Each structure stands twice: as C-alpha cells, then as structure tokens.
Simulated scan of single mutants.
Amino acid sequence: MEFDEFTGTIQHRLELPDTGRTLRAIRATLLTLGERIPAGAAEDLAASLPMEIRWYMTGAVHEHGQRFDWAEFVTRVSDIENVDRADAAYHARVVVDLVESVVPPSDFRQLRDQLPESDDDEGWGNLFEVVDAGGWGDAQEAQTGGGPQE
C-alpha cells in the first residue's frame, strides 16, 4: 500500500477534514506503539508500511521497549494528537486495524504478543477491538446496528 492510499483510507475511516489531522492520528498511534514495543518488533511491523509512515515507528522513536499500559498509551496518543482520550483511543484502533491489513500475519501476531491482554478495561486487548470485530467495515456495522435484524 502506498502513502496516499494509506493516509486516504485513514482519513476516510476517521472522517477527518484534512491530511494534517490524519497524519497526526497516524503519527501519534505509531510513534507511541513504537515506544512500547522492542526495536526489532517495531522494525518488523513497520517494514510493510509505506516508507513515509514506517519512520513513525522506527526513526522517530527515541526509546523502544518502554513499559506502560493501555491507559498510558491512550494518554500519550491523546497528547501527541491533541484530541480527547476517547477520540485518541478510537483513532488508534482504526490505525491498528489498517496496519493489520497491510502487514504479514506473523508480524501482527508478534505485535500482539508484545502487548499483554487482560480482562480488565486497562488491557491491551482494547487496542485490537476493531481488528477482533472483523475489521473496520464489520466493526462499523456492529457499532451502527447494521446487518441482519433478529
């Protein structure tokens, strides 16, 4: 996937008005994710992303492998993106869903293995809600009540 397609897809899915806000959402998510996971895992995951996007997980990160939870992740994304925490969490989920569709399954599994999922609301499973719901299209349908009626 090329840069324009990647950013255009995120802009459409997040319904953002311009490319600047879209890039902030992508950068905030991937930079913070790059800070959380080890450098090698960040390199593996970023390798399949567009070159301009890849840098957010690798070159822009000053310290890989930091230890923080989902709540701190959302706070960092919120601060970088300059949006509220609920928007930051949603944006991160949508960005990660697109990343999942672009990278090899083994690299995405490696990402998930780096982030401990727990049963409480503070677990990293929150990051993968859109992926686990079947991807952006299926998650949107479930959120809006679309699909077959019972």
Rank of each mutant, 00 (worst) to 15 (best):
Q66C: 10
S101N: 01
R85W: 12
E43R: 10
S118A: 11
A25R: 11
L127W: 08
F128P: 00
A133D: 10
W124A: 05
A39I: 08
D132E: 10
A92D: 01
P105K: 01
V130M: 07
G20T: 08
V77R: 00
I80Y: 06
M57S: 03
D119M: 12
V96Q: 04
V131N: 06
P50Y: 15
I80R: 04
R36P: 06
V130P: 00
G40L: 09
A47L: 06
D97I: 00
D79A: 15
T22S: 09
A89P: 02
G59P: 11
E122T: 14
L30W: 04
E117P: 05
S101M: 03
H64C: 07
V99E: 00
V103M: 07
P105C: 00
N126Y: 12
E35R: 14
G40Q: 11
D87S: 15
R67H: 11
M51C: 13
F68P: 12
E117H: 13
L31W: 14
T22Y: 07
A71F: 11
G20I: 02
L49Q: 00
A28F: 07
A133Y: 09
R36Q: 04
E117T: 12
E141I: 03
P38K: 02
G146M: 11
Q149M: 10
T144Q: 15
V94E: 04
W124D: 01
D138M: 10
A86M: 01
E63F: 09
I26P: 09
I37C: 14
Q114V: 07
T75M: 05
E43N: 13
P38N: 01
L49F: 01
Y56E: 03
A47I: 00
D18R: 14
R24E: 12
E63V: 05
A46K: 01
W70C: 02
V83L: 09
S118L: 00
H62K: 08
E81A: 13
A142F: 05
A25S: 13
V61P: 08
G146Y: 15
R67M: 02
Q149K: 15
L23V: 07
E129R: 03
W70R: 06
V74S: 06
V74D: 08
I37Q: 11
H62C: 00
G65L: 03
V103E: 13
E43T: 10
I80M: 02
R76T: 05
L98D: 04
A42S: 01
S106H: 12
V83Q: 11
G125H: 08
M51K: 14
D44C: 04
T29G: 03
V102W: 03
Q110K: 11
E81I: 03
Q110S: 15
D113S: 07
L111H: 03
L30H: 05
D18K: 10
G134E: 13
E100M: 05
Q149T: 11
E52I: 09
A39L: 05
V83N: 05
A46H: 00
Q143F: 13
T75Q: 13
Q114T: 12
E35V: 08
V102K: 02
R21K: 07
E122I: 07
F128K: 02
S48G: 14
R24N: 09
